[in-house]
Structure formats: C-alpha cells, structure tokens
Amino acid sequence: MFLHGARNETLWPLMGPPTVWALHFAAVYGWAAVACAKATPDDSMFLAARWGIGALTVVALAMIAYAGYRAWQIWGFGRFDPPHAAGTETDRRRFLGFATLLLAGLSAVSVIFVGLPALFIAECTW
C-alpha cells in the first residue's frame, strides 16, 4: 500500500498514513473500552491495555514514518517547489509524494494525540 508505482502513478499510497491512523484509532478505542468493561480489582486488564496502546502507537508511528519517508523520496526530498501543477508524469508523482508527506505528518500527530491518554489515565473509574 505504501509503495509508489515505478511508472504508472497510483493513488493508493496517498491513503496509507490516514489508513494507519484510522486503524490505530479504532484499535485504541476498542481496547480501552473492552479493558474497562472487564476491569478486575488488580487492574491487570487495564495495565495490559495501557502497554498495548503504547505498543500500537509505536508501531503505527513506525508505519507512518516509513510511508512518509517513501513519499519524501518520491517528492524529491524537497528539491522541487510545489505546486507541481503541470500535466506531466513527473509532476503527478511529485504532487502525490508531497500530498502523501503532508498526510503522513497529520496522521502522525493524530496517532500521538489518540495514544496520549494511555500515558496519563491510570484508572478506568472515571
């Protein structure tokens, strides 16, 4: 999904980082809800969820970083200025690379924001 086509440009890589964000979001919300619904007095479920959410966040960030790096590469590491509006294959590739890079940045920030509460909230009872 993260790989840009060698010649014929495809839109799929553009959706990579937001897809990771969406999956991370659903997994974190689902895990926290289940862990709190089944909370035990020793809190092992919730503790597992906190560590699990931390691990998921790291994995998601790694995937987004990889996608972002690939996009940066396709864009040309910033050597060419936007808007890449010409009707050529080169410009299409650069435009998609640049757009994917911006989406990777947004997705990374969102994944961090979604994962942060697990760092601070120590109990389910709120």
Binding site: V109, I112, F113, L116, P117, L119, F120, I121, A122, W126
Partner: peptide, 13 residues
C-alpha cells in the same frame, strides 16, 4: 494543541 492536551490529561487525576 499538543501542550494543551498534555496539560489537560495531566490535570485529570
């Protein structure tokens, strides 16, 4: 926004 989020979460307890 990140600073406000961290501050808000820090205040939760």
């Amino acid at each position: 926004l990140a600073a406000l989020l961290v501050y808000g979460l820090y205040l939760m307890p």
